[in-house]
Amino acid sequence: MSGQVSIGRALGSTTRAGIYDHLRQVDDALTVRDVAATFDLHPNVARTHLGLLADAGLLSVGQRKHPGGGRPARIYRARADVDNNQVAIDSAVQPAGGAAAALMVRLLVDLLDSPGGAPLVARAHQAAREEGRQLITSSAGRTPHRRLTEASDRTVTALRAYAPEIRVSGSGVDWIEVDGLSDAVTLVERKDPVLAESIERGLLAGAFEAAGVPIELSATVGARQGRSWRLRASGARGPRSTVVAAASLDARGQSRDAGVVEAMRTITDLEPGDVLEVLAEGPGSPAVFARWADRAGHALIAVERAQDPGGRPAIRLLIEKARA
């Protein structure tokens, strides 16, 4: 069995290992939507996980025709010819995240050498920021970029040295969203989540500065495990000033399914291309609304932490109605 991705990397993610184990247990072929629903993931995230498992040679990929016609759905099945004892050995001796562990050691050395007057979180942020700068400046012959989207290709590619699954998971007129960097700080996250978040923030800030685009950062709630980051070029306006919602729905206090039903009713009265604002709560809410929007042909264009006029916290989702 020779895959394009090592088994260690494929099973280095807890979510991916769970998906593989689930496929082995059900002994059946599942679609992206099946897996997304079972693990509460956005379909695009589930598709990425399944693709890596297939590239490692752990899954076979086929097609299933729809009863009503249309494009066949891609299906995934655990390969029967895989020696799962060998899989366990390979995943143990080829652990993902060796570069991330080395990064943590370097940052620890920097923290020990740095003055002790500033709080640890601030010093960790600064050390990670310098690491991000060095990561970009070490790639010789590359000129600074002027636009956030242009800089993102370079920085995300460079940061994959520490977090192989980092990716741009969404974008808008003046923003991008980045998932997967949390894999670089797993060792710290278990002990001190605040410190881990500070390191992630520093890595992104330093990398984009070196690429020529200083950024503003905010941690957002995403479908994927770990933090998602909303990035904007410094001085760019946020979605509240660039997107005007045609209607608003407060789904807090309702079950997720009831909230989706209300959103379906509300968006029916809107014109194609209009934006519905939904205020939700709970870490799984974005994934639930994203699944509904994807199936209905609508577009989830923003997810962010917010507060209503009364100061009550919420997850703010902007959903653009499908265009005719």
Rank of each mutant, 00 (worst) to 15 (best):
M1W: 06
I7E: 05
A10C: 05
L11K: 02
S13E: 04
H22S: 04
V26C: 15
T31V: 02
R33E: 15
R33G: 13
D34E: 10
A37S: 08
F39R: 12
P43E: 14
A46H: 13
H49P: 03
L52Q: 10
L53N: 03
A54Q: 11
G57L: 00
L59C: 07
L59K: 15
R64V: 13
A73M: 09
R74V: 13
I75R: 08
V82I: 14
N84H: 14
V87M: 01
A88C: 00
D90Y: 11
A101N: 06
L103T: 05
M104H: 04
L107E: 04
L108D: 14
D110G: 01
D110L: 00
L111P: 11
G116I: 05
G117A: 14
A118Y: 07
A118V: 08
R123D: 00
R123S: 11
A124M: 02
H125R: 15
H125V: 07
A127I: 07
A127Q: 10
R133T: 08
S138W: 02
S138Q: 12
G141H: 05
T143Y: 03
R146H: 10
R147Q: 09
T157G: 07
A161L: 04
Y162S: 01
A163N: 07
A163F: 00
P164L: 05
G170W: 07
V173C: 09
D174T: 10
W175V: 03
S182F: 00
V185D: 00
E197V: 03
E197L: 01
G206M: 04
A207E: 03
A211H: 01
G212D: 00
V221H: 03
R224T: 06
R230P: 06
A233F: 03
A233E: 12
G235Q: 11
A236C: 13
V243W: 14
A246F: 10
S248G: 12
Q254S: 13
D257R: 08
G259D: 03
V261A: 13
V261Y: 07
M264V: 14
M264L: 07
T266E: 10
P272K: 01
D274A: 11
D274S: 14
L279R: 11
A280I: 08
E281T: 15
S285G: 01
A296M: 13
V303P: 03
A306I: 11
G311Q: 09
G311D: 13
